[in-house]
Computed example of a mutant assay.
Amino acid sequence: MNKIILITGTSTGFGKLMVQTLSKEGHTIIAAMRGTTGKNQTVANELAALPNVDVVELDLTSDESVKNAFAQSLARYGKIDVLVNNAGVAGFGLAEAYTIEQVRNLFEVNFYGVLRTYDAVLPSMRANKSGLIINLSTGASGFTLPFMVPYMASKFAMESLVEGFSHELKSYGIENVSVQSGVYPTEMTNGTKAGFNADKEDIIAAYGEEAVNAFNTMGSAMFGKMAEFNMNPQTIANGILDLINLPEGERPLRYPLDAIAQGTDHEFVKSRAGIKDKWAKNYGFSL
């Protein structure tokens, strides 16, 4: 069945692949991105030329832009069946070397941007008693890593949002999923898409070579594994399609797609859910 699907962050990477993949399957895609008449005009025109694809301007850091993009889409199509919160920004560096403003920049996209889309789409989904919201998270979504602390914090916050909404919206037939993607070769990881990195140069200098070497060692390990396991971004686009095709009521809260984790991500998701259930029962309620 044809679905009306709005996807954020479609100018590059996973988002662009999602548009191409879902369009081929006959779905109607609202491809949302910034700079549709500016820096991303070429890719906007490329995607708009695909069957059943409508490109809209959307800046996740702007309340007005998000409201306008969703209002425009709802006016044209009458509903949005699926929202895919794909847009996100990365950030690397020592936690102490981040200014508060730089941390805010991460949260504006990775957390507040997601919250803005929820606020914009939920009234119509609740009215229809149906909807699916898929959120791109990160492989290490339940623990943090050195040199990525503010980024992971923004994803932790998003995960909390998704998990809470999944309970509150269940009676409205609205399903919520977070996708644990792991490390893939996209513009976010190859350096061509700028992130919000540590920006206190004096603190970075104070930590010296030991921190630089530790960061490089971790990065080399991650990128080495990415090559070893031949991580293909198409896996994520295909996973989104699989989630959309699942029957209503059968979509999981968390959906790991990280071959490098070799099953440990699935173990973590399962154990975390089990412990949460026990905790809730100890407090006298179920979730």
Rank of each mutant, 00 (worst) to 15 (best):
F70W: 06
M1L: 12
R272K: 14
M148E: 13
L58H: 02
F70H: 03
D242I: 05
S11V: 00
I5G: 02
S124T: 15
A211Y: 13
H167I: 14
D199E: 06
D54L: 12
K278C: 12
I30H: 02
S271L: 13
D277V: 14
S141G: 15
G224K: 06
R76C: 07
E228C: 09
P123W: 14
E57N: 07
N45A: 14
L257S: 00
I260M: 09
A157L: 07
S23N: 05
G263S: 08
A90V: 13
F165N: 09
Y255T: 03
T217D: 05
Q234E: 06
E159Y: 09
S11T: 07
Y255S: 04
Y283A: 15
N190Q: 06
L132S: 06
I204Y: 00
R254Y: 13
R126S: 07
I29P: 03
N197S: 07
E57L: 11
A211V: 05
G88A: 14
S130K: 13
V121W: 03
A127M: 10
F111D: 01
T117S: 10
L58C: 14
A97P: 00
I236D: 00
A214V: 05
A205D: 11
L241N: 10
Q234D: 06
M18P: 02
I100M: 10
K281N: 11
P252Y: 08
E168Y: 06
A261G: 08
L122F: 07
G219R: 10
G26Q: 09
R126P: 05
I204D: 03
S220T: 13
S141D: 08
K278S: 15
E168V: 11
I236W: 02
N105W: 04
E64G: 08
I100N: 08
N45F: 02
L74F: 07
L132F: 13
N110Y: 04
N238Q: 12
H167T: 15
E201T: 14
L17A: 06
V82D: 00
K79T: 15
E96C: 10
I29T: 03
L136I: 15
F229Q: 00
M188R: 06
S11Y: 01
T42A: 15
T8Q: 03
V53R: 00
E101H: 04
K67C: 07
G88S: 08
K24C: 09
A97I: 06
G131E: 04
T144Q: 08
G182S: 03
S23L: 05
I100T: 15
F223W: 10
T235P: 02
Q20C: 04
L50N: 04
I236G: 01
I133D: 01
F143E: 05
L6R: 00
V82C: 07
E250P: 05
V82H: 02
K129A: 13
H266Q: 14
R34H: 09
A75H: 11
L241V: 08
Q180H: 14
N86P: 01
E175V: 13
R254A: 12
E209M: 13
A87R: 01
G224C: 07
I204N: 02
V43E: 01
G219V: 12
L94M: 09
F147Y: 14
E101L: 04
F223D: 01
D277H: 11
L136F: 11
E108P: 06
K193P: 04
T138H: 05
A227P: 03
S137Q: 07
A95L: 13
E250N: 10
F229G: 01
L83W: 01
T217K: 09
I4V: 15
T264D: 10
M231I: 03
